[in-house]
Design a protein around this nucleic acid. Sequence first.
DNA 1: GACAGTTTAGGACGAATGTCCTAATTCCTA
DNA 2: TAGGAATTAGGACATTCGTCCTAAACTGTC
Lengths: 197, 197
Amino acid sequence: MTGNSTRERIIEVADRLIYERGYEHTSFADIAAGVKISRGNFYHHFKTKDEILDTVIERRLMTTRHLLDEWEMTGETPAARICCFVRILVTNRTKIMQFGCPVGTLAGELTRLGHRSSTRASALFSLFREWLCRQFEQLGRAEDADELAMELLAWSQGVATLASALRDEAFLEREVERMCEWVKTGKENVPCGKELD
Amino acid sequence: MTGNSTRERIIEVADRLIYERGYEHTSFADIAAGVKISRGNFYHHFKTKDEILDTVIERRLMTTRHLLDEWEMTGETPAARICCFVRILVTNRTKIMQFGCPVGTLAGELTRLGHRSSTRASALFSLFREWLCRQFEQLGRAEDADELAMELLAWSQGVATLASALRDEAFLEREVERMCEWVKTGKENVPCGKELD
DNA sequence: GACAGTTTAGGACGAATGTCCTAATTCCTA
DNA sequence: TAGGAATTAGGACATTCGTCCTAAACTGTC
């Protein structure tokens, strides 16, 4: 039951593999090989594959809550805190370029397959949504805070998807800057500073 | 070799199933059952699973080219043509809510798995990108046309992902309206018409 | 040192997978 | 209409999948 128990190591490897390969494409054998235990041992810790998935999702929810709490504690301005969120795209750009956004890909896969746990996976989005919503409220946008939160979520999702598919890391970095600018100024920094006619 | 040949029917069913379940999660047996032929017959038309995938991708590329050509021929203004693109989100909203964007999900899956055909799948994005680029050029934004195209692509991708994961069809419809507004006015219609401070 | 409970390894299981073979049937052409 | 090519059905194949069982090894307690 210690932090480095076999169970904990299984969850860590499963978490990584589910991100890198997707849930359906991650097998018991893959995870067991990653943890370096026998497949039989596996069943002692998790009775079904879905049970691992649920555990991984709950773990991600917990990790995300802690991350958001940390950002909230930093004492910076609301705009700066929102930029913390935006900049995870840059921080994790190597993995995002390879595997996409961990939140979006899992929620997408489970929703598409009509999996029982798709709701819990999507709850990760809700976590970010509500946190962003609070930040926009503190920024003086109480009336439309949730809409702004959804807008920023969608924006960052799209950037992750497109940068990964088109292998365009410069695009990812450029868009992160534009998002931060948008948060600070409230205006979209249309490229080249022109208006569409 | 006619239009309704077995081969053509296989491609159609494979196209649909690959969209609905993803490539790895679509089996020979699934497709064969959909076409109502034996699995053995299958091998006469396609030697490997990857061969079907390639055929489906090429078919999607062709279909998309025709679609874009049609939009280009309608003789409307460039802004109206761009809105044609944006509104496919609404037109296909039922399937998008269930299975996400067909372009983004396939490109994402293949990129993540490091599949040989990921580049061709991403070429679908390039098709839209170049088409949008041309429209923005005709709209008098030659210098930053490509950046605007990427921006709109990312925006629509994010909206599809988020609407599907959070089962929020109203969000999808609202964002489509905002995108069309953005194309016409060149300004982002920030919710509630306020500016961030 | 004996014992109970936990953890582990190894493998069995039926089902499903992608691939491939063979033998029928259908179709077109000479 | 006869013969050859194209198409089809059915199943064999090795492998992998999630699941589950059993027996050995380990752990801590009296």
